[in-house]
Design a protein around this nucleic acid. Structure first.
Length: 431
DNA sequence: TCTGGGGTCCTAGGACCC
DNA sequence: TCTGGGGTCCTAGGACCC
């Protein structure tokens, strides 16, 4: 029996399915939903996929399908999609009330089903959930079940492609031979975390299928790629490296950017635009109840117009006291854009990034009240640190204990069980 | 005066995801 | 003519500091 079981549940052609709930005339015909400015395709119905419309293609390249194939192209309505998403997520949370749920994106979530393994047939449960979601919000979904997140993603993928699964693929319940056969004919690019560039690099090494990748040595792959790839390989081998992220961690940055309808070359216009973007980003900042310590502004020429001179530049400004004051932020944004503006270029895109975010009203964190550690652990850590400094001097930690920061602190805190420091002979064991 | 190592921050870029 | 937006993580070099 596997140590953990994950399910990945996602909405098929999410935005198109949301639109279809309210407009049945869209059923059974090719439908796409377009990005802002009706620029690119961001969602496709299965019929649209069948006539060869690829994800992300510009609208003007597929417009002709409207006449030849009865294609319907819709502008996006994110308010609607996020409302539908909330209901979809709520049904799952209620259905699997013993499980931890991670909302991964607007249309998919992971659920940790380990607790259900013993007393339930997971395949039956998944079908029941699928039916309920269709009945209650009208959205068609697929479910993939596996012993790691990466495998549950793969299973979900398989469920979509193989009609006999009828939308639910429980990896654990499938015969090993059948699984292996499928792995050996599935391209490695289908794996979560393997994109275009990695696919190319892997092909050069003779790794073409998921089975090929699963057979590699994670440590070797870490050397050749990165720790991320090593984790992917291990996950394919059934070793769960990625946890469920129950509470979404606080955002690290807030972006507001747009491509302009028309190219802009005047500084004053750019300043006005950037002020609008700053207020938009600021609204999200307030909604999160955060303050911002750094604001970055960037401008772009049109990268598709190769005949034009290209220019990209960004500039960051630190806010002396992290703030959520829109006036201060807007002022800084104007300063920043004045910095990077150059005459003689036609700009097509600009944006604002708020970063160095922290919760509003939070006190500056001292070492030991940073995070909930219980008193006994705190005590153990304190005495261990005292012991270390007494025996080896402050220098042994590289820094005074009050100056422990960043990674060092994380590592200490993550390991502050009493026995961790018991073998001080081997000091420093921290690294 | 000699010198090293280890931090952080910034900038930039690359890769991935939905 | 028309080509999205919002995120994450990792790497690497240079400046600067202790």
């Amino acid at each position: 029996m596997p140590e953990r079981v994950f399910a990945l549940i996602d909405v098929n052609s999410c935005y198109v399915s949301c639109e279809r709930v309210f407009d049945p005339s869209l059923d059974n015909i090719p439908v796409v939903v377009l990005s802002n400015n009706d620029g690119c395709v961001v969602a496709r119905s299965s019929e649209a996929k069948l006539i060869g419309i690829k994800m992300g293609v510009p609208y003007f390249q597929i417009k002709h399908f409207e006449k030849t194939h009865g294609l319907k192209a819709l502008s996006s309505n994110y308010g609607l999609y996020s409302e539908m998403s909330n209901r979809f997520m709520a049904i799952i949370a209620y259905f699997f009330c013993l499980a931890e749920q991670e909302i991964y994106s607007i249309d998919e979530c992971f659920v940790l089903l380990t607790q259900y393994l013993e007393n339930y047939n997971l395949t039956d449960l998944a079908f029941a959930l699928k039916d309920r979601i269709l009945k209650w919000v009208g959205l068609p979904v697929c479910v993939g079940i596996g012993s790691t997140k990466t495998i549950s993603k793969l299973a979900n993928n398989w469920a979509k492609k193989e009609p006999k699964f009828n939308g639910v693929c429980n990896w654990l319940a499938i015969d090993t031979l059948e699984r292996d056969a499928w792995l050996s004919r599935t391209p490695v690019s289908e794996v979560w975390g393997v994109g275009r560039q990695h696919t190319k690099a892997l092909a050069k090494m003779g790794i073409h299928t998921v089975a090929d990748l699963a057979a590699t040595d994670p440590m070797q792959m870490k050397k050749l790629f990165s720790i991320v790839m090593a984790r992917t390989v291990m996950e394919l081998q059934g070793i769960s490296c990625l946890d469920i992220d129950k509470v979404p961690s606080a955002k690290q940055q807030i972006i507001s950017s747009r491509t302009f309808g028309k190219r802009i070359n005047e500084l004053q216009l750019l300043q006005e635009v950037i002020t609008v973007y700053t207020t938009r980003a600021h609204r999200k900042l307030r909604a999160d109840g955060s303050v911002c310590g750094i604001i970055t502004v960037f401008i772009h020429t049109n990268r598709f117009r190769e005949q034009d001179p290209q220019y990209y530049k960004s500039h960051s400004i630190s806010i002396a006291n992290a703030t959520d004051d829109v006036f201060i932020l807007a002022q800084a944004a104007r300063t920043a854009i004045t910095h990077i503006y150059r005459k003689g270029f036609d700009f097509q895109k600009a944006g604002v990034i708020l970063s160095s975010l922290s919760p509003k009203g939070a006190k500056t964190q001292s070492l030991f009240d940073a995070d909930p550690i219980d008193d006994s652990k705190k005590q153990a850590l304190m005495s261990a640190l005292e012991d270390i400094t007494a025996r080896f001097g402050k220098e042994s930690l590289g820094l005074g204990t009050s100056a422990l920061s960043g990674q060092k602190w994380e590592m200490l805190r993550g390991n502050c069980s009493p026995d961790y420091f018991s073998g001080l002979e081997g000091f420093p064991p921290v690294y």
